[in-house]
Simulated assay, not measured.
Amino acid sequence: MVSRLLAIDTVTSACSVALFEDQKLIAQDYQEIGRGHAERLIPMIEALPNRGKAEKILVNCGPGSFTGVRIGISAAKALALAWNSELSGYQCLQLVAAQAQELAKNPDSIYVAMIGGHGEYFVQNFSASGEAKDALQSLSATDALGNAQSNRIAGNAAAALAELSPHFVTCNLLPKAAHCLLISEQDRYLNVAPVYGRAPDAVPAKAR
């Protein structure tokens, strides 16, 4: 029996979708749009074969744009309910690390840095095999540099950090739905919930 998987990625300035059949990519769309993911996502899915309908749906849960994270998850949940599809998620930095390792001639440990909020960066270290070596963090530029365990850095914040420390070898990347199967299978079955990567700006006042 043919099994289809729809992948959705909206957490950065890029909006992308991909449709797989028995783990083989059969259609995709990738657009760097900055904003407007909510208006662009559904038409992109509907343009896929059979309007993107699939038995499984995989969505990027973040971290990234607060709005983008919610758009992707909301769409994935709505489609999973309508199609009675299996739903699971993955984390943004995990995919960026996997994409960077796929491009490398000699994969080694890598540091992923993505643009966060309030001048901070989402960062995490990964091994050559793609396993996370530490926890996801949101750090200032100075702290992000000190947290690096590799001179290889990937992500949309790679160039900015490399300007502060020239010894980095950079790979400027955004996550792309068509590459989601590069992530290990166990890391593609995360609970679908927003990963914001940092504490909320507003904290409820303590009850008096």
Rank of each mutant, 00 (worst) to 15 (best):
K56I: 04
L145F: 03
S65G: 08
E131C: 04
G146S: 10
G64Q: 03
I73Y: 00
V203D: 10
T12G: 05
I73E: 00
L41N: 02
A135D: 15
H179V: 00
A47G: 04
Q124N: 10
V203L: 15
S138Q: 05
L48T: 00
K133I: 15
Q94R: 14
Q101W: 13
V112D: 00
M44T: 06
E86L: 04
G72L: 05
H167D: 15
L58P: 04
A178N: 11
W83N: 03
I183M: 08
E32H: 14
K53C: 07
G89M: 05
A132V: 11
A178F: 02
D29G: 00
P43H: 04
E39G: 02
R35Y: 11
L139V: 08
E120D: 14
Q99W: 05
T170C: 14
E131T: 10
A144V: 09
K53F: 10
H37F: 02
I45L: 12
A157N: 08
F122I: 05
F168I: 00
V195Y: 07
P63S: 07
D9M: 00
P166Y: 03
A80C: 03
L95Q: 04
G64D: 02
A193H: 09
N84W: 01
G68D: 07
S65E: 03
L161I: 01
I115P: 02
V11W: 02
A80T: 07
L181Y: 04
L181I: 07
I33H: 03
Q94M: 11
L81P: 02
E39W: 00
H167M: 06
A27K: 07
Q186E: 11
A157K: 08
F20R: 02
G52I: 04
L173P: 06
L136C: 01
K105C: 07
G64A: 08
E120P: 11
E32S: 09
V69F: 06
F122L: 08
Q23R: 14
H37L: 03
Q99D: 10
N191Q: 14
A7T: 09
Q149R: 14
V2D: 07
N191I: 13
N50Q: 14
L87E: 08
E32K: 13
S150Q: 07
E39K: 04
G119K: 06
G146I: 02
A128I: 05
L79R: 01
A154N: 02
S129Q: 15
S165E: 15
P204F: 10
P107S: 10
N172D: 10
